[in-house]
Every structure is written in structure tokens, then in C-alpha cells.
Design a protein around this nucleic acid. Sequence first.
DNA 1: TGCCATACGTTATAGCATAACACAATTGAT
DNA 2: ATCAATTGTGTTATGCTATAACGTATGGCA
Lengths: 137, 137
Amino acid sequence: MSVHEHSHERDELTRNQGLVLDTLDDAKGPLSAYSILDRLRGEGFRAPLQVYRALDKLMEFGLVHRLESLNAFVACRQDECGAHGTIAFAICEKCGMVAEFTNDEVAHLLEDWARSEKFELAKTTIELRGLCEACTA
Amino acid sequence: MSVHEHSHERDELTRNQGLVLDTLDDAKGPLSAYSILDRLRGEGFRAPLQVYRALDKLMEFGLVHRLESLNAFVACRQDECGAHGTIAFAICEKCGMVAEFTNDEVAHLLEDWARSEKFELAKTTIELRGLCEACTA
DNA sequence: TGCCATACGTTATAGCATAACACAATTGAT
DNA sequence: ATCAATTGTGTTATGCTATAACGTATGGCA
């Protein structure tokens, strides 16, 4: 039983979207679009656009996130995917682990800044790079 | 008189580093490495690595920042460049304007999270995407 | 049934970044 | 002054990331 049964039901996804989401769900860490492509060649994928188009939709649904500092993608690991405006990531530069977390206080502070500057906020990216607990030892 | 007279003196930079920094200083907004390259062909630049190597050093000195969500670079506009651990950016998706700001409270909250998770924080990326005041009108 | 919106498949191309190698300039200790 | 180590440079080649532009297929719905 996957994490993604709730917000968008599995069967609302197209075949390509489902395959891409499964691939990300199965992966231990983030994947680049091209490595998703390679893992799906057996399913008939042949071109990057098949992956990118599915990813665009999955991100729109809030089921997948893009890690900007990595040019890679992860399946959302949170309950209530897509319910959160702002999600932060901690990325281990040694083992590739990605932790996903929310912090409403941070989100509000940034929203306050935006409001004070009359900046119409569409999306917030927060990415922490460093070493996870296991890798510092 | 440039913003960059203080932390690293201009003459501590190599010719290539100085040219790249000047280009970014003169630019209104962020530039990709390749557009920096094109602007410096007249100065003898011929290959991307000449730009990337200079950028790496300038980022190390804190004189230039990389915008992860744009794959582009900006000259630091703050006083005391490089003195700040965490800088946030607001990027207008219409006009390309970039505002650079710091918020110690946000930085501390993220540091607190890292500490509580025993995550050894090396670098924090915060990027706000949206529309600037001028472009919402 | 016919229309419209969305998804799909394919080819080609554009844009971003680094590997690997050779050479030059600088520093700095002996 | 010399040698060695480090840092910066120039160059070629290559790899990774992303999208444009075209046409076809599919599904919902008036």
C-alpha cells in the first residue's frame, strides 16, 4: 500500500504517469529524468519527453518534487501530498539520502517577506545540502 | 565604485575572475554561464570552462551566487559579501528581476532543524519564485 | 457524431556542465 | 636563484539536462 493512495487516486493517472511515479516510489533516492527513462525502457519508453511530460503532471498533482540543486526528482513522502505549500529538503551529499520536511514558521516568515515586498509568491524552494547523521559518523 | 571593494579586493582576482565578475555586475539580472561566455568572447574567452572555473572561485569567495532554480548566476548585491551563511532570493518569473535578502530567523529555524536531525549543514538554498511588484500591476 | 482537450510518440535541437590533458604563472621554502 | 608545489589557463571532446515542433491517438461530452 503506497503513500500515494489518497490525494490523486492511482487510477486517475495515465499509464506513463503511473510508471514514472512507481519508478520514483521504488527508488531509494532522487532520480534524474534520464535515469527514470533508462529504468522504463523495458516498458517501452524511448524518449526523454515521455518522462518529462509525466513528471510535469505529477509535480502539478503534488505527487513528485523537483530538487533544483540536483536536477532530479523524488516521490513525495508526506501524507497529504500536495496539501502543503512549502516543503523543504535536506540532501546528503555523500549518500544521496533526501529528507523531506515542513516548517510552517519558516513558510510564514517567507510569506511575510513576500507580502511586505508585494512579491506575489508562486513557489518556494528550500534545499539544505550537507551530511546526514549516518554519513557524519 | 563597485559593491565588491571590501571582502576580496579586486586585485586579488585573476583576470578571468575579474572579467566574469564585471560581467555579472553590469548585468541587470542573472546570467547563464554560456551568456557570460558570449559576452566575453571579445576578451578572448573561447570555452565554457573558462567561465565555470572563474564562477567556482567567485562563489567560493562569496562574490557570486548560483540560482539553482534558474541554472544561472548573479553578483552578490549585499554589503559584506560572503559574511552571510544563508541568503534567500526572490525571482520574478516575468521580468527576471532577482532580489537578494537575508532573514536570520529563517536561517536559525533551519539550523535548528538540522541540529535536531544531526544533519551537518553545508549550504542552504532558498529561492522564491513569483511576480515582483512591478509585474503584478 | 463531431468537437475539444489532453496525452502520446518521434525526431531534432538547444542549453548546461565537466573530464582529461598539456602548459604557464605564482608562491615560497631551501 | 632554484626547485617543487599549487593554482590558474587553454583546448578538445563529451556527457547530461531539457524543450521545440510536428503529427497521431484517445477520451469526455455537447
